[in-house]
Design a protein around this nucleic acid. Sequence first.
DNA 1: TCGACAGTTCGACATTTATAAAACTGTCAG
DNA 2: CTGACAGTTTTATAAATGTCGAACTGTCGA
Lengths: 107, 107
Amino acid sequence: MDENRLSKMFKALSNPNRLRLFEQIRQGGDEGAVPADARPSRGVGGCLLQHVIDALDVGAPTVSHHLKELVNAGLIETEKHGKQLRCRVAPAALGELARYFGGASGR
Amino acid sequence: MDENRLSKMFKALSNPNRLRLFEQIRQGGDEGAVPADARPSRGVGGCLLQHVIDALDVGAPTVSHHLKELVNAGLIETEKHGKQLRCRVAPAALGELARYFGGASGR
DNA sequence: TCGACAGTTCGACATTTATAAAACTGTCAG
DNA sequence: CTGACAGTTTTATAAATGTCGAACTGTCGA
């Protein structure tokens, strides 16, 4: 795997707030924050940015900025639904990283 | 796993030179750079800092600084042998990270 | 004891980063 | 169309980071 791509991913996760953002998205931060029937298409771990913003205590512009870096690093994918933005972890990225550390099939 | 500890690890790997340093150490950068019988106790992937410094194109002070951060993040362990410093990856850290991404037993 | 060598510590400096406030864009409901 | 809301862009700024050269420390061989 490319060194630059890797370090970009790590940089994206190197800031505590950004890491929290990542984790919120990963666990589909909606659960509990919103009644089940108000959650469109749950299941792949999608979550609305809106709720993440509430969960982290940084302003919306900052979250937007951080999210952009996560997307840019290939860790998160987003999809616009009307006014709202749905975010989910890019499964491929998780796999790459697990392999990098686990040495399972990488290296 | 603790968020702060994690982001510290990621920060340690977020700089391309530091990531290269980590990878050199991980693969026991000595192989080939030194005759086999001049390598004390190879096998656990130890490597002499000296050789790593040659491999990366940054000055010794910078490498020292970077190494300190890797050690501080718990990713690398060092051991002094006379004049030289032997470095190796902390196996536990690799496991933690693999688990974090692989979701195998973590989460 | 001296000189050479491995690595560290100490400033210094330019670059990057995290964050916020203000202003903007796009989408929906009425 | 208008107002409200979700998110983005812009601009500014304080703080952190990466890197270097110079000076320092500790260890070995002669």
